[in-house]
């Protein structure tokens, strides 16, 4: 469709308006536009506009921090799907998980993915920490981001541990029994901590609802908040790169 001379093509003008209303920039055809894209896009502002090439080499970062975040997102999405089916009651939880595995369409793949991604995240977060240590990237001015990272590792472990109980099978209940028995050994506060965590002396309904609430709301929220600060400080404290 061609416009008469001296008049703008109305379709092209509309497309331009539509694009311009969503994105405040063109396609990143050169560095100038690419820089403006990164500056004005909400989702991209997690990154600085430019970084040292050596700081983002795959052989330097091994993608471990990014993969951990990706797994967190994947776990949030698959977890949401699981929540549609799962009722945190000792009477129905096990049957819900059975249904997910054998009845719900793609339920088995979603549950498998949630489980394996959770194990993978424990590993990637741990390796990310080791990578940062070996490169001395925790040194000033990044000391406090290392501290936040340590708490993120603990949150990751607690997220995985709290999710362990939810299928309410023999593996779940006994792993949590063994795990929470360890808390008993702390002097004075130990038994109280265990009682508080389980909502009783045994791993029963009280423990299931507590672990569920921790797993789907409390821990992800705390983790997300810590992640936001962690990423912000990665930007603000500057990148290391090139040993």
């Amino acid at each position: 469709m061609s416009a008469p001379p001296g008049q703008a093509n109305p379709v092209r003008a509309f497309v331009a308006q539509l694009w311009g209303s969503v994105f405040r920039h063109g396609l990143p055809t050169n560095d100038k536009v690419a820089a403006r894209t990164a500056l004005t896009n909400f989702f991209l502002h997690i990154h600085p506009v430019r970084v040292k090439k050596s700081a983002v080499r795959v052989s330097y970062t091994l993608c471990l921090g990014g993969l951990s975040f990706f797994l967190f997102i994947l776990l949030t999405i698959t977890g949401l799907f699981l929540m549609f089916y799962y009722i945190p009651s000792v009477d129905s939880a096990y049957q819900n998980v059975k249904d997910l595995q054998f009845v719900a369409v793609f339920g088995d793949i979603i549950r498998n993915m949630h489980r394996w991604a959770a194990h993978a995240m424990v590993i990637t977060v741990w390796l990310h920490m080791a990578r940062v240590f070996y490169q001395g990237a925790y040194k000033p001015p990044r000391e406090f981001n290392w501290v936040i990272g340590t708490f993120l590792l603990l949150i990751t472990l607690l997220l995985s541990f709290s999710g362990y109980l939810l299928p309410w099978d023999q593996l779940a209940i006994w792993a949590i029994t063994v795990g929470t028995n360890m808390a008993k050994y702390a002097p004075i506060v130990g038994p109280y901590t265990r009682y508080l965590l389980l909502g009783g002396d045994q791993v029963a309904q009280g423990a299931l609802i507590r672990f569920y609430v921790l797993h789907v709301i409390a821990l992800p929220l705390i983790g997300f908040l810590l992640m936001v600060v962690h990423f912000w400080r990665v930007r603000k404290d500057g990148f290391t790169g090139g040993l």
């Binding site: 990164a38 990154h47 506009v49 050596s54 983002v56």
Partner: peptide, 10 residues
């Protein structure tokens, strides 16, 4: 040091 634009490079 040599730098790159994070978008789209990174």
């Amino acid at each position: 040091e040599e730098t790159v634009v994070t978008f789209p490079y990174l």
